[in-house]
């Protein structure tokens, strides 16, 4: 029985021009509707997933302390809380920068991310070097590359002293697009 069905369905049909036209119409209509359904569901879905591509970072200044919290000449790790973090970010809303008070009102904030692959660099006080644990990148105290594979100096963030507070522009992970 099944064989007969298969045979009859695969046999050439004697179609009139009207039937052909009708069949082509429904074929095209069905394909168009499938396309429409895919778009109705797919566009918002893809948009939702790739939204981070287009999310613009608000230019926020974050207070990281008072000038007197930092000794002149010292480089210290400062924790920064992301002001635009999602409510469920927890500890991941935190990040850090290496902050150095150069003079009374002058500060430098280095990114903690090695420009090689983003690992957290550590400041060696005695050696006056930043060192990376991952692939051994080394930077001088001004952030320039001293040794190892980093392709560029450590990134710096803007810092200012405003209303008696040390503020820095929001810390993001700097991406080294070297190619």
């Amino acid at each position: 029985m099944n064989t007969n069905l298969t045979e009859s369905s695969s046999a050439p049909l004697a179609e009139t021009p009207e039937e052909i036209s009708r069949r082509r119409f429904f074929e095209k209509l069905s394909i168009a509707l499938v396309g429409l359904c895919t778009a109705i569901v797919g566009v918002p879905l893809v948009g939702f997933i790739v939204a981070p591509f287009f999310r613009k970072l608000p230019e926020k200044w974050v207070t990281i302390g008072k000038p007197d919290d930092f000794q002149i000449g010292k480089t210290v790790a400062v924790t920064v809380i992301d002001p635009s973090s999602l409510p469920w970010a927890g500890v991941t809303a935190k990040s850090a920068v290496w902050l150095r008070r150069v003079s009374q009102d002058s500060f430098i904030a280095f990114s903690v991310n090695c420009t090689h692959l983003g690992c957290p660099v550590r400041w060696l006080e005695g050696a006056e070097l930043f060192m990376c644990p991952c692939h051994g990148g080394v930077y001088y105290d001004d952030g320039t590359v001293a040794a190892g594979p980093p392709p560029r100096p450590l990134f710096r963030y803007d810092v200012r002293v405003e209303n008696g507070e040390v503020q820095m522009r929001q810390a993001i992970v700097p991406i080294s697009t070297t190619l």
């Binding site: 981070p52 999310r55 970072l57 992301d82 973090s85 999602l86 409510p87 469920w88 970010a89 927890g90 991941t92 809303a93 990040s95 810390a171 993001i172 992970v173």
Partner: peptide, 9 residues
């Protein structure tokens, strides 16, 4: 990263 830095996303 789900944004510009590690976080909730």
């Amino acid at each position: 990263l789900g944004g510009n830095t590690i976080g909730g996303a």
